[in-house]
């Protein structure tokens, strides 16, 4: 199978791109696929913290683009899974450090050894975000059930279909997936939150998964563990399902209806 470049993007900040990139890359690695996750948020490095490898960063993406280091020096091998690698970004304030030709060269090099290359996009629709999505074969649009997030997702979907390399070359379009995060089924039932069907209808792209609002996401980032490594957590299980669907499996959507809490769950339950 040819290597696939996946961009995790959203337009809006704070909706869960880095959490999703970490969980998705780890989920693909757990399924036996050699996966690298790249932080495209130049200047605001954070993927390393979420992945728990912040103290092992020596060289970064920009060093490799500029030829100051090679890939083997910069890639960080995950200590939990042999298939998983992290490619941290630079903390430089030079916004133009991310040159398209350089990014292309590095991605082509990565494609020789990896099955999946997950690109964690910065927020916004500026240079960094456009560079992150430019080379994508598939895109995961991370959206919260909230008006500004849905609107920004629509905007970034427009950019994917007009300004990606596939669009510029008239190739088959980027395969776009919707991932709805921070979903609260109880509030949806009360009519206080957009339902998954509403968001699907408005954005009209296929649904990859629904990640429930869960305390386990903060626990995971506190400890630098992608949430899929926590099999107890609802968010972790939802991400595992989404990865399976991404790989072509059929899985029923869970966590879209309010959970009926039994006596023992109320007493001992974890989110």
């Amino acid at each position: 199978m040819a290597a696939q470049v996946i961009v995790v993007t959203s337009g809006k900040g704070g909706v869960g791109k880095t959490t999703t990139s970490a969980a998705f890359a780890a989920g693909l690695a757990l399924r036996g696929h050699k996966t690298v996750v790249i932080d495209f948020d130049v200047g605001l490095r954070n993927l390393d913290l979420v992945m728990g490898c912040e103290r092992r960063v020596v060289f970064d993406f920009i060093n490799v683009i500029n030829g100051d280091a090679n890939l083997n020096q910069a890639l960080i091998k995950d200590k939990r899974n042999d298939n998983l690698y992290i490619f941290p970004t630079s903390q430089t304030r030079d916004k133009d450090a991310l040159k398209r030709e350089g990014v292309e060269r590095v991605l082509d090099e990565l494609k020789k050894t990896f099955d999946y290359i997950v690109c964690d996009s910065p927020a916004g629709i500026e240079h960094g975000a456009v560079t992150a999505l430019y080379f994508a074969d598939r895109a995961i649009i991370v959206t919260n059930p909230e008006v500004s997030s849905v609107r920004d997702s629509d905007r970034i979907i427009g950019i994917l279909s007009s300004r990606s390399r596939r669009a510029e070359r008239n190739e088959p379009p980027v395969d776009i997936h919707l991932l709805l995060t921070r979903y609260d089924a109880e509030r949806v039932t009360k009519g206080e939150m957009l339902a998954v069907e509403d968001v699907k209808e408005i954005l009209s792209i296929p649904l990859l998964g629904v990640i429930p609002e869960s305390e386990s996401v903060l626990r995971a980032s506190n400890t630098g563990t992608p949430v899929v490594f926590d099999p107890e957590s609802s968010a972790g299980r939802a991400y595992t399902d989404a990865v399976a669907r991404f790989l072509g499996e059929q899985r029923e959507m869970r966590f879209v209806k309010p959970e009926r809490k039994g006596f023992f769950r109320v007493l001992f339950g974890r989110a």
Binding site: E146, V150, R151, G191, E192, M193, L194, I202
Partner: peptide
């Protein structure tokens, strides 16, 4: 129900 207000507003603006 504020969710349905949100949906209508989004449809129009988009």
């Amino acid at each position: 129900k504020t969710a349905s207000i949100a949906k209508e507003r989004l449809k129009i603006v988009l």
